[in-house]
Computed example of a mutant assay.
Amino acid sequence: METLTEETDTMDSDAARTRSKPRPLLIAAVVVVVLALVVWALTADSGSDDSTVSTPAADSADAGFARDMAVHHQQAVEMSYIVRDQTDNEDVRRLAYDVAQTQANQRGMLLGWLDLWGLPKTSSDYMSWMKGGGHMGHEPKDGSLMPGMATNIELDKLRKLEGKQAEVFYLQLMYDHHMGGVDMARACVKQCGVETEKKLAEGMVQGQQSEMELMTGMLRERGSAPR
C-alpha cells in the first residue's frame, strides 16, 4: 500500500500548471502534524471527566467506517490520478488535484485511527457496520465493492478516454463516488461513537456535497449530466 506521503508527492509532481509544487519536507511535516492532532484529540476524549472513550471493537461502526472509507477514498485518488493524464483542461485537473489531496489526507487519518486502536485495516465484510443496510437507494454496482465505487471495467474505460470524453466520464464517476461516500459518512455521524471521527464524517458530507454541485455544473458546461 502506498503511503500518504508517496501519494501526495506523486500528485504534486504532475499538478495543474496553475499550482506551485509543494516541497516534500513541508508535506511530510504536515502529515506529522495531522497525525499528532489525531492522537491528541483521541487522548483528550479518553481522558475527559464525564466519560471514558474505550477502544472501538473490530466490528464497531467506528472501525468499519474507518476501514471502508479508506478503501473508498483510495479509489477516488486513483481516478483523479488517471484523469489528470487524460486531459489538459485546467478546471478538471484542479478538481482532480483537490479530490486527491483531500481524500489522501483523510485516508491517512482513518488508517491512523485503526493503528492507534490496534485494529485490522482490511476486511472482506464491507458495509456490515451500517445498521439496517440502507444506502438511500444507492447500492453497489455489479463488480464494485461499495456504493459509488467504480468497477474495474469503468476504470479501464476511463484510462482509454481522452479530452472532453475523459472529463465527462470522470465527473460522472466521481459524482457517483461522492454520493456513495456521503451515505457512508452520514451513517457514521449517526452510529460512530468517537466524537473526532463523527466530526470528520460531518466534514466529508459537507465537502463532498459541495463538490457534487461543482461537478454538476461542470457536466452541464460539457452538455452532460450525472448518470
Score class of each variant (00 low, 15 high):
59 D>K: 03
103 Q>P: 05
186 R>E: 09
222 R>V: 01
106 Q>W: 05
221 E>F: 00
64 G>H: 08
9 D>R: 10
162 E>K: 14
207 G>P: 00
72 H>P: 05
174 M>S: 02
89 N>K: 03
19 R>K: 12
157 K>V: 08
144 S>L: 09
164 K>H: 04
19 R>C: 06
176 D>T: 05
71 V>G: 06
71 V>Y: 08
18 T>M: 13
105 N>G: 09
155 L>M: 14
36 A>G: 14
179 M>R: 13
23 R>Y: 11
184 M>H: 09
196 T>Q: 01
88 D>R: 10
36 A>T: 09
173 L>C: 02
56 P>R: 02
98 D>F: 06
201 A>W: 01
187 A>T: 02
213 E>F: 01
183 D>P: 03
146 M>Y: 11
188 C>G: 03
194 V>L: 04
97 Y>L: 14
139 E>C: 03
67 R>D: 00
24 P>T: 05
88 D>H: 06
142 D>Q: 07
45 D>V: 00
29 A>D: 10
213 E>V: 04
75 Q>I: 02
121 K>F: 00
3 T>G: 15
30 V>H: 12
6 E>S: 15
197 E>A: 01
96 A>G: 06
68 D>W: 04
124 S>H: 12
184 M>D: 07
146 M>K: 09
119 L>V: 07
26 L>V: 14
42 L>Y: 08
38 V>S: 09
96 A>C: 03
21 K>V: 14
197 E>Q: 03
178 H>K: 07
197 E>N: 00
